[in-house]
Amino acid sequence: MSCLETIQSYAMRSLGIGERLLPRSDFTLCEQFTLIGSGMIWNIYFGLMALCVGFFFATALAVAKSTTNPWVRKPAKWFIFLFRGSPLFIQFFFAYFLFLNLKGAFQFFSPFTAAWLGALIVLFLNTAAYSAEIFYGALQSIPKGEIEAADAYGLSGWHKFRRIIWPTMLRLAWPSYTNEAIFLFHATTLVFFSGFPAWQQRGDALYYASYFADKTFNPFVPYPILALYFIILTLIIISLSGLVNRRLNSHLPTNMRIQFKFRLNIIR
């Protein structure tokens, strides 16, 4: 099989499109690149969806955590602690078995035991908690002067939040939030190792990488390929978020802008 044919039959394998059987022996470099790349579709799906939905929930949580009303503040605090204080790996396991039990009781929950929905919900709640903590930190460090100026202009309530507080919060939080995004994508590799089954061998990049490593007993090819894909993904995220960062900081002189710094931030 030429490399082009391999790409044709395996590029969408992780979605169940194309060749049904995975290669079994005499693995070529092309097959490994194609299948692991095909698995990246799942990583990007999980990461992107969780980030997009999680962003709004995180904003709400951060605002809730910084209110004075204890009935709002405490639940937000506990939620954030629950998801930040425990390992994501255990959260996946717990959620999977929880959904499995619920599925037994209610038919409604049957899609939740599949990775595309069940794992996505866990990732969404998890990233919401981590991002909320970032946003909360940013809310605490909004310059007093900006809020006072908003008051002086007669802005209040939703208007003040939408026009003054929220943009400043985003601006301050953005470098950390970029980190969160990067590591959320890294965390998506845990999904298929934590209970959620890879139905018909439709898995993510790490699933295929470990498939090749198990079959060939040679970790030195598939894992570096996976690493390469993830480094490319990380660079794309950094450059995209750089554009957003420029927009958020566009009113500031260049020496006052907050630069992105790649920080450690691993396993959740």
């Binding site: 890294h186 965390a187 790490l206 990488a209 470990s210 970790p219 030195f220 690493a227 993830f230």
Partner: peptide, 21 residues
């Protein structure tokens, strides 16, 4: 730098076989 750019779980899976071999 290398350890930071790549999902850590990939490292765990990689190093165990790589070290053993």
């Amino acid at each position: 730098a290398v350890v930071r750019g790549v999902p850590d779980i990939a490292f765990f899976l990689f190093f165990v076989i790589a070290l053993d071999q």
